[in-house]
C-alpha cells in the first residue's frame, strides 16, 4: 500500500546564506495492507520528516513515495488532495481547525468531504467521540478551547472517521490516560483488521508492541554528513 524507495530530503535556508541541510537520504520502506509499521529512531532522526513526506506536506528531493498507486513525490497537488480525501488519513500531533466550528462537525468533516450525508456523517462522528470519552456536552463547542488531551482525542476521532486504506499516525497515544490509550489502540487494531496499511510513530513502547508488526529505524536514513 505504501512503498518508499530512495527518498532524500534537504532543507535550504535561503535567508541564512543559502545553507543546505541534508536530513535524509536513501529512505526505503514498505507497508502492506493490514500491516502496521512503526518508525523509530532518536529525536530529530527524521521520523516526522519521513511521515510528512508521505503525507505530501514536505517535498522529497528525490526518490519515490507510492501510496495506493500514486507517487506522492511527483504528484500534482490535486492528486494529493484527492489521495488525502479518499485514501490516506493522517493523525498529527496538533489539531488545526477553523475556530468556532463545533467538535462534532470537525470530526464529521472528512466524511462530508466525501459526500456522505450530513446526518450519517454526524452519527459516525458521535460514535467515535463517545468511544473516545469526549463528554457529549462538549460536542457542540469548538475544540480550540479544549485541553491538550481532549484535542488529541478529537484529532484521532477525525482521523478515524473515514475508513482510509492507509493511515499515518504521529504519536496517537501521547498525552492520553490509560483508558483512552486503550480505545485508540483498539481503533488501530480494528483498522488493521479491515486491511488498512498503517505507518506510525509511537514513543509509547507498550503501544508499539501491541500494534506494530515491524519497526523501521530511520537512523539508517540519516545522510552521511560531509560538511
Amino acid at each position: 500500500m505504501i512503498r518508499i524507495s530512495g527518498v532524500s530530503k534537504n532543507f535550504t535556508l535561503h535567508n541564512q546564506g543559502g545553507t543546505v541541510i541534508p536530513v535524509m537520504a536513501g529512505a526505503a520502506l514498505e507497508v502492506a495492507p493490514g500491516e502496521c509499521v512503526g518508525l523509530i529512531g532518536a529525536s530529530g532522526a527524521g521520523k516526522s520528516t519521513l511521515m510528512r513526506m508521505v503525507w505530501g506536506n514536505y517535498l522529497a528531493a528525490s526518490g519515490s513515495i507510492m501510496v495506493g498507486g500514486l507517487d506522492v513525490a511527483k504528484a500534482e497537488p490535486r492528486q494529493i488532495i484527492a489521495l488525502r480525501r479518499v485514501t490516506l488519513g493522517y493523525v498529527s500531533q496538533f489539531l488545526r481547525v477553523v475556530p468556532r466550528v463545533p467538535t462534532l462537525d470537525v470530526v464529521a468533516e472528512p466524511l462530508l468531504q466525501l459526500g456522505v450525508p450530513q446526518d450519517q456523517a454526524r452519527d459516525r462522528a458521535a460514535g467515535l467521540l463517545a468511544r473516545l470519552n469526549i463528554p457529549q456536552r462538549l460536542w457542540s463547542l469548538s475544540p480550540t478551547t479544549f485541553s491538550g488531551g481532549e484535542q488529541q482525542r478529537v484529532n484521532i476521532a477525525r482521523g478515524f472517521a473515514h475508513t482510509y486504506p492507509a493511515l499515518l499516525l504521529d504519536e496517537p497515544t501521547a498525552s492520553l490516560d490509560a483508558a483512552n490509550r486503550e480505545v485508540v489502540l483498539s481503533l488501530i487494531l480494528e483498522a488493521k483488521t479491515r486491511g488498512a496499511a498503517i505507518l506510525g510513530i509511537f514513543h509509547d513502547e507498550g503501544a508499539r508492541a501491541r500494534v506494530c508488526d515491524r519497526l523501521v529505524d530511520v537512523t539508517g536514513f540519516t545522510p552521511k554528513v560531509a560538511a
Binding site: 532543507f11 510528512r52 505530501g56 506536506n57 514536505y58 517535498l59 497537488p77 494529493i80 488532495i81
Partner: peptide, 10 residues
C-alpha cells in the same frame, strides 16, 4: 506554488 500545507510548512 503547491499544496497549501506543503508551501507553508516546507
Amino acid at each position: 506554488s503547491g499544496l497549501t500545507d506543503q508551501v507553508l510548512d516546507d
